[in-house]
Design a protein around this nucleic acid. Structure first.
Lengths: 339, 339
DNA sequence: GTGAAAGCGCTAACAG
DNA sequence: CTGTTAGCGCTTTCAC
């Protein structure tokens, strides 16, 4: 290796170490660097990892890489990780706890320096216990953990303001004169869903209106199904807050299938501002939550932990904003009264 | 480790080796296995990789994970890899050759057992040379390489029948009575694009019709822009073959924006059968190319190479089929004549 | 059939 | 400031 070219042995290691933690003569460093370039030396991360009991790799657990929501977070995270010289390993659990746990084990085996959980946690005893065990493993070799969605576990977190965003979305609809505002939310055992539902409920309660809700998983299919159930139940709503843009895809499809126009008959607000909606009709009014930025912040947070310079607060809540597009409309005075 | 529990040293390694390559007494193996379970022993892939000069990891290079096209391939590949005990590292180049090369270097550093290239190769001297260098590196430690799209490099490949699919799509339109069939294809320096364009041209030539084409990158934006250019140029077409479903998203949006209905004014056929079109209007007629299956086949192929049991043919072409949905319609006799 | 030894490539601890 | 030594956890010679 570089040692052959230079003349020293493990001094080369010190010469090339990035935060210079050991004194090295400038001339020596020069020779080592020259040799490294000459031979195209590349340090072996496996050997490093073996010695340091930790690699320059960051694991990212998502529910579904194909979902634009997670894809955006991953985009931000990988970019930021690459900038810091880290490689990311993205694992898609397909919303199956067993698969997720298996991946987490594998990532631990590979001694990832940090593990980011992009999806929300489950309200499930067994699952939480299993995760707790893994986390102990991660902690044992000094890996960082960051949550990018709400969880019961008290980890450092970079999360969207789910509650506030949902309130904002609902208030937008109320402000347009809607009185019968229904909710299509995610599964009840996921914290993200519960928070968004809570925001909706708070806004409805403040307006002294009766809430109406249906839940599905965070997929287009589930959005369509939930909308169908609301309609089949005979609910008469003029507006719909859908707790995820991905579900909203299915919601709009189902409404159209039932002959309801958006925003003519029903106004719809989504959540997430997932890219791609500019290519759909009508463009969706939604809550923008800076997905890529959450990925970036998650990686920064992990690096801060690794360097022991992580500061409170433990949970950092990211601001959201309402993006008004064409899926919502104001109700005429008469319509509001009739509702 | 397990050695403490048992009583032996590196015999444990032999006892746990999956293809038993060394004789071990049944009783010993029993004790070792019991100890392994007891202590929850998990072999360290870093140490293994360091020794074997190769890890149980498969790298997958894609142009854009967010694109449903690649997401499907990745889904198939990761599932199959996991089944064989391999972890996948997905790297998204964002269509930037420099980024791609950097990722390839990192994957080599991590001694991936195999590298799958999901995107098509570039017709670019410098890029090809750079890739050739990396491949030499991979070969030097016995890693496998598989192409999942056409390339000049003569690697083992599992590819879609791009030419045949494009011909099929074009013939479908011709069969419906269309005479002015235009093409929206991908970049000219990507092999996948060229093959699909070739299929279209072959079908048009056989029908003695003049081809009309515009190229873009494989994104919705580019699809919309290319459609705009065709229209601005004053091309009068009644049908459009779009060489990728992802671009077709933008194509339909642009047609609608210009006041053209699909399939009323223009029939459109895509390529790929990317999931999600069931939630768009109108559902797209397209060429189904079994994306996930290509990912699965790619991993199998890589494993076969690693085990030295890869058989010809070098390039395996996957069948495609036409999926007729609602974006195409037959022209009335009078319309065909007028065209 | 099993143990002892060596080494994959790297870096930290310990002399000098 | 630099060289030597040791060891991260594993597997594979080479002896016995």
């Amino acid at each position: 290796m570089a040692r052959l070219a230079g003349v020293s042995a493990a001094t080369a290691s010190r010469a090339l170490a990035s935060p210079r933690r050991h004194p090295v003569a400038e001339t020596t460093r020069g020779r080592v660097e020259a040799a490294a370039v000459e031979l195209g030396y590349r340090p072996n991360p496996l050997a490093r990892g073996l010695r340091a009991r930790r690699t320059s790799t960051i694991g990212v657990m998502v529910h579904d890489v194909g979902d634009g929501y997670f894809a955006e977070i991953v985009r931000g995270a990988t970019a930021e990780a690459a900038r810091a010289g880290f490689l990311t390993m993205v694992c898609s659990s397909d919303r199956d706890p067993a698969t997720e746990l298996r991946y987490v084990d594998t990532l631990i085996d590979h001694r990832v320096a940090a593990l980011l959980f992009a999806g929300g946690g489950l309200r499930d005893r067994a699952y939480q216990q299993a995760i707790a065990d893994r986390v102990a493993g991660l902690a044992s070799y000094g890996a960082a953990i960051v949550a990018l969605a709400p969880r019961v576990e008290r980890w450092p977190a970079e999360v969207t303001d789910n509650r506030g965003g949902a309130r904002l979305a609902t208030q937008h609809l109320l402000g347009l004169g809607h009185r019968r505002v229904a909710l299509v939310t995610g599964p009840d055992n996921v914290h993200t869903s519960r928070d968004r539902a809570a925001g909706y409920l708070a806004a409805m309660r403040a307006a002294r209106l009766a809430p109406v809700a249906e839940a599905g998983t965070f997929t287009p299919e589930a959005g369509a199904a939930a909308t169908g159930r609301l309609l089949d139940r005979g609910e008469r709503f003029t507006a719909l807050f859908v707790a995820s843009d991905t579900m909203a895809v299915g919601v709009l499809t189902e409404l159209r299938r039932r002959g309801l126009s958006v925003p003519g008959d029903v106004s719809v607000v989504g959540f997430g501002d997932v890219p791609g909606w500019e290519f759909r009709t009508p463009p969706l009014t939604t809550i923008r939550s800076g997905l890529a930025q959450i990925g970036v912040a998650g990686v920064r947070r992990a690096l801060a932990q690794l360097e022991g310079r992580d500061r409170p607060p433990r949970v950092r809540v990211h601001r959201v904003e309402l993006v008004v597009r064409e899926s919502t409309r104001a109700l005429a005075r008469a319509e509001t009264a009739a509702g």
